[in-house]
Amino acid sequence: MEAAVDYLTNHFQGVFDALKIAVLTFLYNMQLFMEWIPWWVVILTVFLLGWRLVRLTAGITFAALLFLIGTFGYWDMMMYTMAIVLTSVVISLLLGIPVGILLAYSKKTEAVVKPLLDAMQTMPSFVYLIPAIMLFGLGKVSALFATVIYAIPPVIRLTNLAIREVSKDMIEAALSFGSSRRQLLRKVQIPQALPTIMAGINQTTMMALAMVVIASLVGAKGLGMEVLISINRVDINQGFEAGLSIVIMAIIIDRLTQGIANRYNYKKE
């Protein structure tokens, strides 16, 4: 393991640096945006989304819960955490969906990658922090890296599954009209797979949130860090409030992404 990391750092330092810069720039802009956006806009948006995607009472509840986080004094922390979560989710999807599609197309690749995914999911999450620090040093990038690795398996898995499960009848119909492979993928397989992929996105987001909290160990600020600090100080009150804020975020994100997933669930034949 160590040798491998050494090899990587020695030979691909340039690549890692470039990656680091790209990711940091993205994260930085995300953070700027999160800081810039006024609190009432966030609450209003979440209310509207909750209303439209789930139901009116859900919208009201979500808004009230967010307000509660504000009263704890954790608004900025929450937005900061959200920036890291969103960034890692975006990276996870950019990597995970194409990989999932690739697996669906090739039995061999699937045979190699699947055990890897299993291993990734059974390992305790903080294990990813070690190679992350070795490659990127302490800080946000390591936190992001570890989060992406931890959160990416569900979206890969479910994309793969979803594409494989698209009905043969539809695929044959599309082929019989002379679709190219790309057209088949774009016009049939991906749209058909979307509801399941959405479920994968939901899981990935939830796992990213869980991991971001742990990733505060390697120096990502945010709500996780607050929990950590209060544990060290044995400050039960502060720890409770920070923990509750994380739970609230989790609930809201979960319901909203599920709501989106349900939207895509047109009736199957």
Partner: peptide, 16 residues
């Protein structure tokens, strides 16, 4: 396939 033949399927093959 685009120009000369078209198929109608027993189970319809409609894109849902």
């Amino acid at each position: 396939r685009q120009n000369k033949v078209a198929m109608v399927f027993q189970h319809f093959g409609i894109l849902t």
